Amino acid sequence: MNDISPITQTHSITPQGAQKLKQQGDALLTDARRALDEQDWTQAIASYYPAFCIAETMMNMSRCQNCATRLIRQYLRIGMEYLYCLRKSADDKNAAALMALVKHSLAGRTISQPAEYALAIFHKVAYSPMNEVDAWMQMLFAADESRLHTKH
């Protein structure tokens, strides 16, 4: 597995390139969530890592405040799911590195109230007892399913 390290460079990208990057991130996230659902922590981590890196890149490339707020929440959500998998696999070294990376990546950013809430939940996933985190994550994914079915 790759060590967790920050994406420090922000490059200019065309709208088409940004769309392709988003599609790749979405595909990786689908794979990661499928592996998470199957409790295949190794595969989930292998898919969450690049999905998280793409989310970080997209967040760093954002130029408008509304987009940045949405991308920060998305970054934290993907990071939270990734952190959950790291904790489930007992990968404490990379879980701690992920926490440090998120703090570093968000330092100096203006964070909206919804993103502040997401950051608080991220910390709970990092530090709460695993049985509480398991229950909370199950509720989170159940709420996602409910919203998905409501939209159709």
Score class of each variant (00 low, 15 high):
residue 62 S to Q: 09
residue 125 V to H: 05
residue 72 I to T: 13
residue 111 I to N: 09
residue 50 P to W: 00
residue 73 R to M: 14
residue 133 V to M: 04
residue 78 I to M: 03
residue 120 A to P: 15
residue 65 Q to S: 14
residue 86 L to K: 01
residue 81 E to N: 07
residue 40 D to S: 06
residue 122 F to W: 03
residue 101 L to D: 11
residue 105 S to Q: 11
residue 132 E to V: 07
residue 102 V to M: 03
residue 92 D to Y: 00
residue 41 W to S: 10
residue 77 R to T: 11
residue 73 R to W: 02
residue 46 A to F: 02
residue 81 E to T: 00
residue 67 C to G: 12
residue 115 A to G: 13
residue 105 S to G: 05
residue 102 V to A: 05
residue 107 A to L: 09
residue 80 M to L: 10
residue 54 I to V: 05
residue 115 A to C: 13
residue 59 M to E: 12
residue 85 C to P: 15
residue 60 N to R: 10
residue 42 T to G: 07
residue 33 R to L: 15
residue 74 Q to S: 14
residue 60 N to S: 10
residue 140 L to P: 12
residue 128 S to G: 12
residue 71 L to N: 12
residue 41 W to M: 06
residue 132 E to L: 07
residue 95 A to I: 00
residue 64 C to K: 08
residue 88 K to R: 11
residue 95 A to H: 05
residue 129 P to K: 03
residue 135 A to T: 14
residue 102 V to D: 02
residue 72 I to H: 10
residue 62 S to C: 10
residue 79 G to V: 00
residue 34 R to C: 12
residue 121 I to Y: 12
residue 123 H to G: 15
residue 99 M to K: 07
residue 128 S to V: 01
residue 129 P to Y: 00
residue 77 R to C: 07
residue 92 D to V: 04
residue 110 T to D: 15
residue 88 K to Y: 00
residue 129 P to V: 01
residue 129 P to M: 00
residue 39 Q to P: 13
residue 74 Q to I: 07
residue 65 Q to E: 14
residue 119 L to M: 10
residue 78 I to G: 08
residue 108 G to R: 06
residue 91 D to H: 02
residue 36 L to N: 13
residue 77 R to M: 11
residue 68 A to T: 12
residue 136 W to Q: 15
residue 90 A to V: 03
residue 138 Q to E: 14
residue 128 S to F: 09
residue 40 D to H: 10
residue 97 A to Y: 00
residue 96 A to S: 06
residue 97 A to S: 09
residue 43 Q to N: 12
residue 94 N to M: 05
residue 56 E to I: 03
residue 85 C to W: 01
residue 61 M to E: 07
residue 93 K to N: 08
residue 75 Y to L: 15
residue 84 Y to H: 09
residue 95 A to T: 00
residue 97 A to G: 07
residue 95 A to E: 02
residue 56 E to V: 06
residue 67 C to T: 13
residue 58 M to C: 08
residue 65 Q to F: 01
residue 50 P to Q: 01
residue 95 A to R: 01
residue 57 T to C: 08
residue 89 S to Q: 10
residue 91 D to E: 05
residue 97 A to T: 06
residue 58 M to L: 15
residue 105 S to M: 04
residue 67 C to K: 06
residue 84 Y to V: 06
residue 116 E to Y: 01
residue 71 L to T: 10
residue 67 C to Y: 00
residue 137 M to Q: 11
residue 140 L to E: 15
residue 58 M to K: 09
residue 95 A to S: 13
residue 76 L to N: 09
residue 85 C to I: 00
residue 96 A to Y: 01
residue 102 V to E: 04
